[in-house]
Every structure is written in C-alpha cells, then in structure tokens.
C-alpha cells in the first residue's frame, strides 16, 4: 500500500429487507485503500460488492461499522460534505445522465453549486480531458453513444476535482473495443491526477488491469485479498477465486456430462 489510508472500511455491515427479518447484503467487510492506489472489488451479481461501493458513496441510508474517507469519518448524513473529495461513475451509461439535460448543463451544475469560477473554461477542459471535443458540449444524452456517455459521466465526476473516484462496473455495458478506450482513459487520468480508485467489477481481468490490489467478494463477505501481481502469478488460494479464474478460460465440457450421456 502506498501513502496514508485514503479510505478505511472496518466491519461494514449492511442489511436490507423488512424490519422483521433483515437479510444481510454485506457482513463484516474491512479493507483499506492508500492514496493514489487503485483497489478492486471482484464478485458476481448479488455478491454485495456494489452495496459496499454505494455505502462508501453515501447512497445507502443505514449501515453499521466504520467508514473513514480522507481521515474523516463518514456518518450516514454528510453526503454533500464529501462532494469535492469523492465522486462516482455508474454502471449504466444510459441511466446516469439526465435525459433532458445537455452535457453542458450536467457539467455546469456542480460548478454552480460549489461556486467555482471560470466555469466555461473548466467545462471545456473537462471535456477535452476525457477525449471529447467542444462539439459535444451542447448535446443531449440521446445524441451520444454509450462510450461517449460514459466519458461524459467521468468528466462530470471529475469536474469538482475529487481525490477519490468510485467506479461501479464502468465498462460492463460497453463493447470490448470501447471498454479498452475507457480503461485507457481511466489509467491516464489516474496517473495525471494521482487519483484513488475503488473499482467494482465481475471481470477479474478488468480489475487486474486497472488495480494494484483487489478483494474477492461473495455472499456479502471478502473471502480473499491479494495484489494483482499475486493473482497473475496464480497465487489465489480460496476455492471461489479459483472458480472465477477457471471460468475465465471459457467453456470446458464437464466430465460428468460426457460420461453420463455417452456422447462421442
């Protein structure tokens, strides 16, 4: 880990469901992320990885445990106070931009709320930083492709110059070639601005590509934490992690199926 802890999560527990029989979505999750580090949470749908991220973002009203961001304890109320420290990029580029707001509006609004000066200049720079020209400034979301929308979402997340970016499956809705462009953009931005990332994904390769360290989440718990180098070296120990690794190799005919049917 590099530098002091930018994010510290200890014993995070989130429960959903009716008051009578609450079902835990996340149970006793703890991890730390250093300043300038990229940390990945890998797991399948329903594992609780996104819930952890949303708790960090302040988008979940009730949780137990401790979350500290940049040394400051997050309680369940101070969503606004952290706007200039931490921002988030959502999974679905079609749902994260307001359908009736132009790109210009989406980028101007946070600047107006926080009283920034030189707004027009900042908006133009934010767009060029994510690889979009000035021609995109006054477009509506329906005039953008999925990849362009995700670039706008990244520009919006970065316009308040936060130090932490939470990334919720930022490329899973995109085509492979567009994913490559967005992943490159994210690594460039991280290097240029010394950002801290928390990336949630179901794709081990994406996480290993972006992050230095990662945790494997299943059934609301972290079962294994390791560096990306360890993962690449095949040092994963937990059976669940090995299963995820196995599935990456594509389809392999199960022994039982061929034996049972007598095919071939």
């Amino acid at each position: 880990m590099t530098g002091a802890a930018m994010i510290e999560v200890r014993d995070l527990t989130v429960t959903f469901g009716p008051r009578g029989k609450p079902t835990p979505a996340v149970e006793g999750v703890s991890f730390q992320v250093g300043a300038g580090e990229a940390f990945g949470l890998v797991g399948e749908s329903g594992s609780g990885k996104t819930t952890v991220l949303r708790a960090l973002a302040g988008l979940i009203p009730a949780w137990r445990g401790r979350i500290a961001i940049a040394g400051q304890d997050r309680n369940t109320r101070n969503v606004n106070g952290l706007a200039r420290t931490l921002q988030m990029v959502f999974q679905d580029p079609y749902g994260s931009l307001h359908p009736r707001h132009t790109v210009d509006w989406a980028l101007m609004e946070p600047l107006a709320i926080h009283g920034f000066d030189g707004t027009a200049r900042r908006v133009a720079r934010a767009l060029s930083d994510v690889g979009l020209g000035p021609a995109f400034r006054f477009r509506y979301p329906h005039q953008l492709s999925g990849g362009q929308r995700q670039r706008v979402a990244i520009a919006r997340a970065l316009i308040l110059e936060p130090r932490i970016l939470l990334l919720d499956e930022p490329t899973s809705a995109l085509d492979v070639s567009v994913q490559a462009e967005i992943l490159n953009l994210l690594s460039d931005l991280k290097r240029a601005r010394g950002l801290t990332y928390v990336l949630v994904s179901h794709d081990l390769a994406v996480v290993a590509h972006v992050c230095e360290r990662l945790a494997v989440v299943t059934e609301g718990r972290i079962v294994e934490e390791m560096t990306a180098a360890q993962l690449r070296a095949g040092e994963a120990r937990h059976p669940y992690t090995r299963q995820l690794l196995e599935s990456r190799r594509g389809y392999s005919r199960p022994a039982t199926a061929s034996a049972g049917t007598g095919a071939d």
Partner: peptide, 20 residues
Amino acid sequence: RGLLAAQPTLERAGGRLPVM
C-alpha cells in the same frame, strides 16, 4: 485481431490496451 487485443487479460500486466 483488434477485438482480441482490446480484451484485458490476466497474463498481461497493466499498461495501455491497444485501441482499434
């Protein structure tokens, strides 16, 4: 070839992905 190369893999560490 571009599609195959654009996919991040566990074998290759970090760096930039080739863009098609």
